[in-house]
Amino acid sequence: SSQSQGISSSSTSTMPNSSQSSHSSSGTLSSLETVSTQELYSIPEDQEPEDQEPEEPTPAPWARLWALQDGFANLECVNDNYWFGRDKSCEYCFDEPLLKRTDKYRTYSKKHFRIFREVGPKNSYIAYIEDHSGNGTFVNTELVGKGKRRPLNNNSEIALSLSRNKVFVFFDLTVDDQSVYPKALRDEYIMSKTLGSGACGEVKLAFERKTCKKVAIKIISKRKFAIGSAREADPALNVETEIEILKKLNHPCIIKIKNFFDAEDYYIVLELMEGGELFDKVVGNKRLKEATCKLYFYQMLLAVQYLHENGIIHRDLKPENVLLSSQEEDCLIKITDFGHSKILGETSLMRTLCGTPTYLAPEVLVSVGTAGYNRAVDCWSLGVILFICLSGYPPFSEHRTQVSLKDQITSGKYNFIPEVWAEVSEKALDLVKKLLVVDPKARFTTEEALRHPWLQDEDMKRKFQDLLSEENESTALPQVLAQPSTSRKRPREGEAEGAETTKRPAVCAAVL
């Protein structure tokens, strides 16, 4: 046999249950609850290399294929790409003598399909299967379609040439079993990697079954959420508030809700932002270029202005709740996480202390139980975000031990490091100062900020419009641009040419 590394010779191994799959997660993409704000000051410096380099560890398999027929071997997927077919160049070659004697062998292509993985959001991997055969590759009886790919989820059954000719079961060793999710959700989405997690739940990458488009699904544990919100009269209202707010909003710089499922837990389906959180971008770069800050901040102002015009105060604006559309420097941003939002009543007064301390406005800290506050709290938070983006460190921090965090904020005395700000323009610093004003009545509004000289930049605004146009074009394009080929190089076993392929839609398939 010419099988590559990772293939075992026996096809009769006992199949494990899916609970053996491991679970991976990374930083929070968007969480309903406010958790302790991640610290920006503690960015690790590059460490000196050791005298002796450690040995390379043996790579762990990321997936496993269990053979369902004699003549096929099990495969431990270690590499990122595997070709399957009769050709000797394939990493998994159909060359077992037992297999060659079967009637089905002649229906398999020289290069029938490939399984591979690509880097997705949060640097996690996504597994795909890609059909290159004349007679078809099927996943859970659905045709992939020649020249098309679809994501592979845990426990997928792979069939060759005929939908009933099941050859492998695919085990993704990095994700959960699909069966743990409600059927209504599974009918519409293929669940994938964990993108982030918080005290009350997690955010998962998923794929729409009909279109193969990526989405983010925010899962909120009702049990954990009820415990964490025990002081509230009705904890469920917080989730329902977020859903109702998101459904009503329609702005290019605000995250869109696509679906909602109320089962044992809450499942909020949101558009996916491939670039992750602004927080991670700031930490990764230490600070952002001023031109990049301007492009992002302009969009934040437009989003918050839209919220305020619609009578909504976000109340928890922070870099973790600003998501980026891509890994590119120039990209769209979207505001997310409306769990603490407040729809303005007639009095415009709110007395609930919520939000993240580092970003809270002075009037929030001094008015607990005594007075109210209004939309100006969001403008203060925007000032803190702009400060961080321009400088790479927070204006107020618990680690300045000589003054408490509350006193720093209520006095408006931010930590100004001259040598850092020497590289920032006077106009940018002036806008920061106009937003970090203790008196909410004297603080800049979103309208005033948008009129500030720093943002009178036609090149930046043109760039934003171009990015918007690109997004609109990409969302308007159909996901499947061509029909699967019906040509046949070899006959199917026991049926006429093209008899099955043309009847089945290529579900969740995307043209390369």
Rank of each mutant, 00 (worst) to 15 (best):
I243K: 09
E244R: 15
K247W: 15
K248S: 13
H251P: 02
I255S: 05
K256R: 13
N259C: 08
F260Y: 14
F261N: 11
D262R: 10
D262A: 08
E264L: 03
Y266P: 00
Y267H: 10
L270S: 05
L270K: 01
E271L: 09
L272H: 15
L278I: 04
N285M: 12
L288C: 07
L288E: 09
E290D: 12
A291P: 09
K294A: 14
L295V: 08
L295M: 13
Y296V: 09
M300W: 01
V304L: 12
Q305C: 03
Q305V: 05
L307P: 03
H308Y: 13
I312F: 13
I313T: 10
H314N: 02
L317T: 00
K318R: 02
P319F: 03
N321S: 03
V322K: 08
S326I: 06
Q327E: 06
D330Q: 15
D330Y: 09
C331V: 12
I335S: 01
D337K: 03
S341Y: 02
S341E: 00
K342V: 00
I343K: 14
G345P: 13
T347G: 05
S348H: 15
L349E: 06
L353G: 04
G355T: 07
G355E: 05
T356S: 03
P357W: 06
T358H: 03
Y359F: 11
V364H: 14
T370D: 09
T370M: 13
G372T: 02
A376H: 14
L382C: 13
V384A: 00
L390G: 07
L390F: 01
Y393W: 05
Y393G: 09
P394S: 13
P395G: 00
H399N: 10
D407C: 09
D407V: 12
Q408I: 08
I417L: 14
E423W: 15
V424R: 15
K427R: 07
A428F: 00
A428T: 04
L429W: 06
K434Q: 03
L436F: 01
T446A: 12
T446D: 05
T446E: 00
E447H: 06
R451K: 07
R451E: 09
D457Y: 05
E458V: 14
K463W: 04
K463S: 15
E470Q: 07
E470K: 09
E473V: 01
T475S: 14
A476P: 15
A476K: 12
A476H: 04
L477I: 09
Q479I: 00
K489Q: 08
P491G: 02
R492V: 11
E493V: 07
G494L: 09
E497V: 12
A499D: 13
E500I: 08
K503Y: 13
C508K: 07
C508Y: 09
A510Y: 01
L512I: 04
L512G: 00
